[in-house]
Write a protein that binds this DNA or RNA. Structure first.
Lengths: 131, 131
DNA sequence: CCGTATCCAAAAGGATACTG
DNA sequence: CAGTATCCTTTTGGATACGG
């Protein structure tokens, strides 16, 4: 019997989809933005450089693991810089790059839509759930 | 000894954070957009209503479970409508609501930034990984 | 044709402890 | 201060089978 059935077809479609994603810049950005803490860190850095401990406080509720992981990701993507000042104790500052700063308006656009329409969404949810 | 230590403090901060998120429309929207398939489905519906099976094909690689789950979520949020035509076999059409359509420009803004800057991001990544 | 229900594997993410 | 390493729970999401 042929093992190549619906399962195989789906797997193939999935590979095609993954390849498509790899080539889709918008999707990559969305994946970054969808990381739970990225936008919060971006906003925390919006008005100037911040130290690690400052971010830890400003972005309330974030674990060390997630903060570090998020910062590393942003640094890798060229959105933030990490500056180590070798004094005692060590001092590390994070700041937005111009590229990172250029992303802020996009986040603001999302925020603007949200502020303008999330009321309708909330109402729709309430109506949906009531029924 | 007091069991109320760093752990408790963190937990409290986390509750505060969660409460903050519950009140933050932008964050809620971001959570929606971050759902892996939401934007793809939104785009698939951008130029007109589509049937379930059509979406299944247009959004390559999606499983039935995820497609249904995504559509239910969008319907709940008032972003898409679900219209059942009770013939044999059943026919179900999905379409964007005006609210859902109004979200398209936002997605487009994200896409625009991505198209304009993802090259730099990719370069930054390459540089970071090479080192 | 359009789903729902169940199971299960993989990944995300938090708590804790430890280091330079 | 600024992390790293480990463990472990929770969530996510695909595969499969079945129902209206």
């Amino acid at each position: 019997m042929p093992t190549r059935t619906a399962a195989e077809q789906r797997a193939e479609a999935r590979r095609a989809y993954d390849a498509y994603l790899a080539d889709c810049p918008a999707r990559q950005l969305l994946d970054r933005l969808s990381d739970k803490w990225v936008t919060l860190v971006l906003n925390a850095l919006a008005d100037g450089p911040r130290r690690y401990a400052e971010l830890s406080r400003k972005v309330a509720g974030v674990s060390q693991k997630m903060l570090t992981q998020t910062l590393r990701g942003l640094e890798r993507d060229g959105l933030v810089t990490r500056t180590v000042t070798p004094c005692v104790p060590v001092r590390v500052d994070y700041a937005l790059t111009p590229l990172g700063a250029s992303l802020l308006p996009v986040v603001a656009a999302v925020k603007a839509w949200a502020d303008g329409h999330m009321g309708e969404v909330a109402a729709a949810r309430a109506a949906y759930d009531a029924f």
